[in-house]
């Protein structure tokens, strides 16, 4: 059972988010981390490997410094990694990213591809679907439970009401949600070991990519404008001196809410 787990480096949840007004791209020159949702994907891949054997390969597209995120997955226990780095890929949208990841995935052995449900920066959650489409395999998204049974996989797919059970033959692409497991901490030995694990850095030409389909120019999504939302204004505080209810009604009435 070989598994590929797709990971992304995102800017830290606490870091200040800034958009470059020239390109509307996120300024990544701040603290960056492994996408928190991807930690669940890595953990799930490792658990399946521990139960069924095989190898786990991390696949990542990003700038050179994304190596830190990839190393973290290796420190957690992933066996090897492919990192696609190329200036030409900068600004790729969902489709372009999926094209790159799918081409990278074609170069390695896998029965399952596992994604985190979405990235905390792009927030589309669409890349797993686009990759599955490009690879021509089924997609099972937003999973709260994954169980490999021989040559198929049984899953719980989270819905607003509860979950739906599916069974699907392999190979397949999965995306998993927060809470499916408790991601492990990289141990010190894991971190030391990760330094020696194979990490294959590839550029666009090594993957034979058509550069017309990648990067800002190759993306079909065009960002026309963006703005930081206005900070929320302070609310009205009503002290209850016995006439609180009356004041609330008056306030609601003044806002034409009652």
């Amino acid at each position: 059972m070989n598994i590929a787990v797709c990971v992304k480096q995102v800017i830290d949840t606490e870091a200040e988010k800034r958009l470059d007004p020239a390109t509307w791209r996120l300024d990544r020159n701040v603290t960056c981390i492994l996408n928190p949702y991807d930690e669940y994907a890595v953990e799930e891949a490792l658990r399946i490997k521990e139960a069924h054997g095989g190898e786990v390969t991390a696949v990542c597209m990003g700038p050179q410094k994304a190596e830190d995120a990839v190393r973290k997955s290796l420190a957690m226990g992933v066996d090897s990694a492919v990192l696609v780095v190329d200036e030409a890929l900068t600004g790729s949208d969902v489709q372009a990213t999926a094209y790159v990841l799918a081409e990278a995935l074609k170069g390695i052995q896998w029965d399952l591809v596992i994604f985190g449900v979405r990235s905390t920066d792009g927030e589309t959650g669409c890349v797993p679907a686009a990759v599955a489409e490009r690879l021509g395999v089924p997609l099972l998204s937003t999973l709260a439970k994954v169980e490999v049974q021989g040559s198929s996989v049984a899953v719980h797919r989270e819905t607003e009401q509860g979950y739906v059970s599916y069974e699907c033959p392999l190979p397949a692409v999965l995306s998993v949600i927060k809470g499916i497991n408790e991601p492990r901490y990289p141990s010190m030995k894991g971190i030391m070991g990760a330094k020696k694990k194979p990490l294959d850095v590839k550029d666009a030409s090594a993957l034979g990519l058509d550069t017309a389909q990648v990067g800002l120019s190759g993306s079909k999504t065009k960002v026309l404008s963006a703005r930081i939302p206005e900070p929320r204004k302070a609310g009205v505080k009503i002290e209850d001196d016995g006439t609180g209810a009356q004041k609330i009604v008056e306030f609601l009435a003044s806002q034409k809410l009652v």
Binding site: E43, N181, E182, P183, R184, Y185, S187, M188, K189
Partner: peptide
């Protein structure tokens, strides 16, 4: 000794408990 990780507020081990390393 480095700190144990994965201990909950009540002091119990979580599923991802990772004991600290003796350096």
């Amino acid at each position: 000794r480095t700190g144990d990780k994965g201990i909950d507020a009540g002091g119990d081990k979580k599923p991802n408990y990772e004991p600290g390393t003796d350096l």
